[in-house]
Design a protein around this nucleic acid. Structure first.
Lengths: 223, 223, 223, 223
DNA sequence: GATGAATGAGGGTTCATTCAT
DNA sequence: AATGAATGAACCCTCATTCAT
């Protein structure tokens, strides 16, 4: 059977591996600390034997890292599918935020996953390494999608090209993260989810749009 | 001698505790995963005996959490000192970013500390609990300073009051975090630190300033 | 596999648990201080891994306490088997003492186990708790067997019923313990084992027998 | 100042040492497990510094062992004083039991101390060693006093000389211990303390008295 | 292939003992 | 002399990993 390379087709993934990935994804969404989770907890939740997990992975960390990469890919896939169906940059941005809020618990997972990319725990390091090997671009996936959105926006003449690309990428990504953080905070604030989201979108549009294009006419597609 | 409450005056902290705090602060700045360090690593670096650490703290986690709170307070103190010396909102924002870049390694520490507040590891949980007990406001310190800056800005008529406070707080904080993330990325981008920083500041000002006040005349005080 | 309840059938005990019990029983007989043994000493003697012990027990103390209860049960079983084969009270008493001397090293174990029931070390406390849960009678096993012997003796008209039951129980038990203490003393006295034992038996018989029944005709069955 | 030899006059004992002895004696009476007690617990109770204890003793075990020997001597002294004031063997036996019951909590201490002599924990071993060095007779103190009582009884013609001395010593001692065990049992039985004690005394007298001397006329002096 | 009982290295924590003050 | 802060050896327990079934 042999160990996984992490680059198999989703469809080619053995059943047991999917069970593991789902178990770990669940835990991520539930806010369980994945750096502290025990192998037995994962395999029990997955409903398979502990030894079986080691048929596919060399270590616990690899197992979790692969699961998170899988989770990240699935999430990105879901996000992108919605995004590229939209015709304008503004709509695309709205869609991303809307999708983030749709599956509330998934947001928690997505945020915690991104944060992991900035921490130096074993799992985060493994994920970053894997990402490096996969793409020549050294950045992580979420930044990449943002980049594609911006490039398309510039190409379509919706976005001004003056600001540095890197800045725009980070700015957009950080706003999505901000939204997730906001959703994560237990103490619900005075500001409604929807309003908060709307402000974030508007902020992006306002900052990146070419002057003429922006007349505060952006409809709130999120409603 | 007795365990620490975590609310001692900085000056009243025993020497050994300061040695521990410094050792942990160093490790934070060096990017070492603090959820995985061994007690012996900390005490060796601090130059004290392993048992001594337990004269002041009940567990490794408490020790690290307290050290990080100390680190956070020191950093906030340093930031605030610079901030309130400035006369305009714009200058205050610039100062925060400038200070963040001044001590490059400290930024890494500060960012990783903030991220910890959004993760559910033992240490993060302890820090959040402690913060809850300290302030009636349930948010973490960085958001608080941001809030104060905004309130002052509104009061001075520099900032428009239409946007929800919570949104403004999060937006500003997230931009500071974005800067830290950017500094942290190993692969230095094509965009210079200074330019990146400038863009971030401008973004804040542009979004929050009362219309008239903003004629793209904001001087880049950071240079 | 799960932790043990301590109420499993002897036959149902996992092999590793039996190995542990035997190792601890050996140590008890050898006079090793069981409140001070290391887990590694026990598992090494049992020939199993340190971690394995924790698959079956929650703590070192529980492990030792369970082993001693097992030891106590086995010993009581062995004693009782001999006892109830005898037809008279006198013979029954003789048999108990004889059996105690048969396995010299076991006596040491049995005595030390009983003494433990009167001390407040962790293990003793656990044993007492467990005994409470097992029987409605709050006394420990050895007292119970003595009680049964006395009751049978009264029923058969061999023993007078005037003395308080509790006194008789304690008196008999203490004489058995006295014999064990005597056997334990390193400095062998001037008095032979057999003579000492005979005196102890006689003392019991003399004190408890109905007047008529006792004409110093009791044959020394122990020879 | 130098370490103690353990053979100083009571009056010559430094104040701090007495404080330690009293603290340990208290703990013994309270049923605290002295093999598990911490040095800090002892010194705190004694109201002296931890270091001070080590000015007088080489180790915790030595400290506790010496304290227990001191306790044993005091108890024996108290017992003997009463005993030798009596004129007959019967009265002497009664007195011992009466004194044991007088100070209920002390009994617990005395019993636990005697049991320690039959266990192989560090402290028990030290006590036994010390006792060996002190007297040519290898037995422990309680057995010795019993011996003296019996010898006096034989000398006075009250006790028959047929039974082996060792047997008589053990028998008597074990009856005293039995009384202490009885007092120690939490579940107070149906049999009153006094009655139990009376039975124990009677048993001794009946077994050891010269035939003629015993006509069931022994008055219950314990009342 | 799948399992989970068994392992033992590793690390957190305790506490007897020391020694500078 | 008296103290108690500091130390680090020692030990319990956990849990990632293996491997016989």
């Amino acid at each position: 059977m042999g160990k996984l390379t992490g680059r198999e087709n989703k469809e080619a993934l053995p059943e047991k591996v999917l069970l593991l990935y789902n178990a770990i994804g669940e835990m991520l969404s539930e806010g369980i600390d994945l750096t502290a989770v025990k192998v037995s907890e994962i395999t029990e939740r997955a409903g398979i034997g502990k030894g079986t997990a080691y048929d596919y992975f060399d270590s616990k960390e690899e197992m979790v890292a692969r699961a998170l990469l899988f989770y990240m890919e699935s999430t990105m896939e879901y996000l992108e599918k919605g995004v590229w169906e939209q015709t304008t940059f503004t709509e695309r941005v709205s869609t991303v935020f809307k999708r983030m809020s749709e599956v509330a618990e998934k947001n928690s997972g997505a945020l915690r996953l991104i944060l992991m990319l900035f921490d130096n725990n074993q799992i985060g390091i493994l994920i970053k390494e894997e990402l490096k090997h996969r793409k020549e671009e050294k950045s992580c996936e979420p930044l990449l999608m943002t980049k594609k959105m911006i490039e398309k926006g510039i190409q379509d003449g919706e976005i001004k090209a003056e600001l540095p690309m890197e800045y725009m990428m980070y700015m957009m990504t950080s706003r999505v993260m901000t939204y997730m953080m906001y959703l994560l905070k237990e103490e619900n604030g005075q500001c409604a989810d929807e309003e908060f989201r709307h402000c974030l979108c508007q902020g992006i549009i306002k900052e990146l749009s070419v002057e003429d294009a922006f007349h505060e006419t952006v409809p709130d597609k999120t409603k």
